[in-house]
């Protein structure tokens, strides 16, 4: 396998930069560029996006010259449970209210680890919720509704 001497991580990295740069350039096309005196909203970001794309190309080219370590495994289970936690909180905090929303968000996050036992997860989520309600809602008086309209039916 000698001919395949390139760093796959950096190759992907370079492609990612090129893709992101391309995305921003594409978005800039709808923006007014303006003149140097009165630069439009697209002037500065277009330059940056071009630089980003260019740097992506450099990374990609460099990747073909050396061999690097492989990327290693992705934390798929972690991503599956960690990332939805804040999203769930955001979707439900106004409907369900602060207490149930936070409880379930913490519960979801808890299952990201394979070491977590269900009972412990529930206890932990409960403890977090209790602490947060006492501190943020009662002590600091943040304007969160503790139980939202969805719980009233």
């Amino acid at each position: 396998m000698k001919q395949l001497q390139f760093d796959s991580t950096n190759a992907i990295c370079g492609l990612t930069f090129i893709a992101l740069g391309g995305f921003f350039i594409y978005q800039c096309l709808n923006l007014d560029l303006g003149t140097a005196f009165r630069m439009g909203p697209g002037y500065f970001p277009l330059i940056l996006a071009a630089i980003l794309t260019l740097l992506g190309v450099v990374v990609l080219v460099q990747a073909t010259r050396v061999r690097g370590e492989p990327m290693g495994p992705l934390a798929l289970r972690g991503m599956l449970f960690i990332l939805p936690a804040p999203v769930f909180f955001g979707l439900t905090v106004r409907g369900l209210g602060f207490v149930p929303s936070l409880f379930f968000a913490a519960l979801i996050a808890a299952f990201a680890s394979s070491r977590m036992k269900p009972l412990l997860a529930v206890v932990l989520a409960g403890a977090i919720t209790l602490f947060s309600v006492l501190v943020f809602s009662y002590a600091l008086g943040l304007p969160f509704e503790r139980f939202g309209p969805w719980t009233r039916l």
Partner: peptide
């Protein structure tokens, strides 16, 4: 594994 549900909960509250 106990720490990060706590982290996620607080950072949700903080950001919101």
């Amino acid at each position: 594994y106990v720490l990060f549900p706590i982290i996620m909960a607080f950072c949700s509250i903080g950001v919101y």
